[in-house]
Design a protein around this nucleic acid. Structure first.
Lengths: 228, 228
DNA sequence: GCATATTTGTCCGTATGTATA
DNA sequence: CTATACATACGGACAAATATG
């Protein structure tokens, strides 16, 4: 058995290498990202190097590296000699984010001529997740699932860089979701609108899905702008 | 005079604040970026923390921050415990970059209904620059100007985030230009193709410009792939 | 396969510059 | 204007991983 165990450990270590090991800075960034996205650290909060490095038991150098990672994702803004702050989105930011979404999502839809059934699997999975979350009354999770649906749309472009871009865009948008007063009223209606888009795609009506998506984005932008 | 001088200094300092001061790490990153983009540091080169920090007279910590900035721009790749290397583009990277360009540039063109003359000013400026560089035989600068032309196309989307994305995409593409054997043979023909796109846009024939751009991107991708 | 040298990852203490009450 | 708090940058140290002979 000892031999098998050695082999297992070796296999796991190899897998770990493939998964990409993470530096302390990346793990710290992941932790902070989670907190921010969950709303535990609201926008405009200043993050003190000293306090946080002390709390997490990492050096300030390492924490600064984590800050840089998150600043690049636009979750934090870095002001020279003043520190880092959780981003607060302006109306201009919001409009710009939707401009990017139009380019990416609509472009991805136009790129697909034939939508094979295997390509809408991710779409349907996100949809099912949203519906289940709605049944359970987890409205924030409904929002997350809806975002995953649109991430899947972007993924139709088949480009890693576009996928990453879309992830960052949606992470920024989540900063607005957090300050929405009534999550249910906002997120729930979009489930069925996503379902409609999914249905049209499965039926091969790409153009109709495209138009539905245009209306979706227009409505979502308007509603979010009003809430800001 | 002393009073005036004091006032001048104060005014300049205020201006400097508006221009945005830069940290040491950012200046170091800028310096390295320039070297890499000029081809002085070829792809796959490993950058030694010790040697470079010593050469530039900055601490290792500061240099590491600069590395991280460039890694985010994908000019460097960071391998844990092995150091940073100048990125070498794979054929997959190249195809992906063109996929992004199609999404961004074609999407930007589709977004503009009426192309006011003031919006093509940047296009024409880049075009003139490319022609002048060709006259002077500065073929690398022709490539740079051509890239600026396509940056101006992306700018038609009117989105800061899209503009930044496009800048990064073109910076990556430049890494391939550097290894092209015959810059003239590659860059020169595209000047007139850009001119054609510009002409069509000025004439208000957006759809025709769109189609010309599709062919441009297809041809450029194919030619670069072959050179890789 | 092993031992050694090199390089990176991480942390700490400190000095200096900057912003703000 | 001063005082305080904080970010910036440096240099040194050691552990851990990697490269080399």
């Amino acid at each position: 058995m000892a031999q098998n165990e050695v082999a297992l450990i070796a296999a796991l270590e190899q897998e770990r290498a493939l998964l990409g090991r993470t530096s302390t800075a990346e793990r710290v960034a992941g932790l902070l990202r989670e907190r921010i996205m969950a709303g535990a650290i609201p926008p405009s909060t200043r993050l003190s190097e000293d306090a946080i490095s002390r709390a997490l038991g990492v050096s300030r150098n390492t924490l600064r590296e984590a800050f840089r990672l998150l600043a690049h994702e636009r979750l934090l803004v870095h002001e020279l000699n003043r520190g880092v702050f959780v981003r607060r989105l302006t109306p201009e930011d919001l409009s710009d984010l939707f401009q990017v979404r139009r380019l990416v999502e609509l472009g991805a839809l136009r790129g697909v001529r034939a939508v094979g059934p295997e390509r809408v699997v991710a779409l349907r999975a996100a949809l099912d997740e949203a519906r289940q979350a709605a049944v359970d009354g987890r409205w924030m999770d409904v929002g997350t699932a809806n975002m995953r649906f649109h991430l899947a749309i972007a993924a139709l472009a088949g480009s890693p860089r576009v996928g990453e871009l879309m992830e960052h865009v949606l992470a920024e948008l989540r900063l607005v979701f957090l300050v929405m007063p009534d999550p249910r009223r906002f997120h729930e209606p979009y489930i069925e609108r996503n379902a409609e888009i999914c249905r049209l795609l499965e039926a091969g009506q790409v153009d109709a899905a495209h138009d539905a998506l245009v209306r979706y984005l227009d409505d979502a932008e308007r509603e979010l702008l009003r809430a800001l």
